[in-house]
Design a protein around this nucleic acid. Sequence first.
DNA 1: GTCTATACCCGGATAGAC
DNA 2: GTCTATCCGGGTATAGAC
Lengths: 177, 177
Amino acid sequence: MGSATLDRLTPRAREIVRTAAELLEGEGPEALSMRRLGAALGIRASSLYEHVRDKQALEAALISVGFEEQAEVLAAAADGAAEPIAALFAAYRDFARRRPNLYRLMTERPLPREQLAPGVEAAAAVPLVRATAGDQERARAIWSFAHGMVILELNGRFPPGADLDATWRKGLAAFTA
Amino acid sequence: MGSATLDRLTPRAREIVRTAAELLEGEGPEALSMRRLGAALGIRASSLYEHVRDKQALEAALISVGFEEQAEVLAAAADGAAEPIAALFAAYRDFARRRPNLYRLMTERPLPREQLAPGVEAAAAVPLVRATAGDQERARAIWSFAHGMVILELNGRFPPGADLDATWRKGLAAFTA
DNA sequence: GTCTATACCCGGATAGAC
DNA sequence: GTCTATCCGGGTATAGAC
């Protein structure tokens, strides 16, 4: 539950990032504006700049925290699982459904890698790379399938009646054959 | 090359949609505003509303045309191919790279299905469903992999040195085993 | 069919007072 | 640390004149 990213911030900045995360998830991406974030905290947007460099830095913090949480849930899922890939799929999907807007923020633009907390991106990838015994190509192919499933689901792109559990099983079978 | 969607529009509306497509692809999604579209056509934004209901309708037209083009290139690729799935992968990736911003427009939000030209979404899916002999679960799993590969590439989410051709081959092997 | 003018909304960010 | 005031930018859309 602890976040190294949050821990390196001042208490007030921590509060801001936390509130931003709630705003993003609770009211959608358009709610993540400096004005609305200020309002949610009971201060003016201009006051935020005392604690946060700019909006980019705020988003980078959100993304870093997202990677930390993702790393945690994925590692926990794979740990000692009889079928690690299946367990990772379930945990990956679960994370994306619990934090759909954060998940989009983390995936739909180029990563601001220089602004992220060091190592968080790699840490989130570790469980899958482990599960493929270090085969990076296979790990990336599996990740692409999982991301495709997740993002198409979040974006409402599958036909209304689609049986996604069955589709996940198809993918699992393909990649573990 | 003919587009049923465009053919049903007045000449001026057709011109508008065409220009919008060029603007979107050439200058990015933020360029797709009524003001900038008007400017590209040499008229005021307000004049566009004589020809296009609103921005949603314009985007729906762009998406419909996108599906038509996609259906065409996918069908052509699969036609008589020795390895239809491999051919579809290549054509799918090629389409997304040629029209990255249109591809994003087509996939990153829920489809405005009521506003699309009838049948275009289904038509784009036909080649893949054929290639899986009607197995919809398999078709969806393959689509998810392809979409994941494509969108993660477009969004710059793979590590800088990643060998994506190799990753595509891994996915192909998994789904055609 | 296009114009001007306008209504409304939103955004990020800074200067300088307190 | 927060404020007000302000600067800049952007957007969709309508009314009414020509």
